[in-house]
Design a protein around this nucleic acid. Structure first.
Length: 210
DNA sequence: ACATTAAGTGATT
DNA sequence: AATCACTTAATGT
């Protein structure tokens, strides 16, 4: 069994379940920026994050994106639950935010364990809750916060999931995540820098106000 | 040196 | 807050 599995999930699951997870899952190491799951893809596996971070995005008709939330170590994707036995298609896109190690569990196994292991069942229900709360928080953010607040929150979230106060990205990419234009982001970042909340260099931003 | 990409800015809606 | 049009700065070849 991989150390990472024991480390991230050892306190949640009993030995037998961990061994089954280890045996049925496929370990994957994924580089930053890879698309794990795209809109329309059939869902056959559920990911268990061992480390790293994944961002979950929604897309509109003309292809522009909106970031919904991040997944971290110990998280799993909520979309997988709402589709039985790989019959449904993914409604979201998942992109690795940093280099990520994860385990892919076949949906069949995940359903089977629901009946077999209480700890697994609790984990799934709990994850579902967490995702739902996270989703509500983003809805609030989009609906009630001004763009400058959203931007700062986004930078803070990003720093958190990546465990690094340095954010390696361009203004354009941030604009895509927040579904706005680059010009707006550039201007707001300028303000945040003046307020000593961040420091900027080309292609990276240091978050000071964490 | 030149082309490409990232970031800054004023004006307009 | 978005868009346009344009400038300036940094980086790659």
């Amino acid at each position: 069994m991989r150390e990472a599995l024991q480390l991230s999930y050892g306190y949640l699951f009993e030995k037998e379940l961990l061994q089954e997870i280890d045996a049925c899952g496929t370990y994957k190491n994924i580089k930053q920026g890879e698309v794990l799951m795209d809109i329309g893809n059939p869902i056959t596996h559920m990911p268990l994050l061992l480390n790293g971070a994944v961002k979950i995005l929604r897309e509109d008709e003309d292809g522009s994106e909106l970031l919904l939330y991040f997944l971290e170590k110990g998280d799993t994707c909520a979309m997988t639950f709402s589709c039985g036995l790989g019959k449904n298609k993914s409604e979201i896109r998942a992109v690795t935010e940093s280099d990520t190690e994860l385990l892919m569990i076949p949906v069949m196994k995940m359903e089977y364990w629901m009946g077999e292991y209480k700890t697994w069942r609790e984990f799934i229900v709990d994850s579902y809750h967490t995702r739902m709360k996270e989703l509500l928080e983003t809805v609030d953010t989009i609906a009630f916060m001004r763009m400058d607040e959203r931007l700062l929150k986004h930078l803070q979230d990003k720093a958190k999931v990546t465990h690094d106060d340095m954010i390696y990205t361009t203004h354009q990419e941030i604009a895509y995540d927040l579904h706005t234009s680059r010009v707006v982001i550039s201007r707001l970042l300028k303000k945040l820098e003046k307020d000593k909340k961040i420091e900027m260099q080309r292609n990276h931003i240091k978050v000071i106000d964490l």
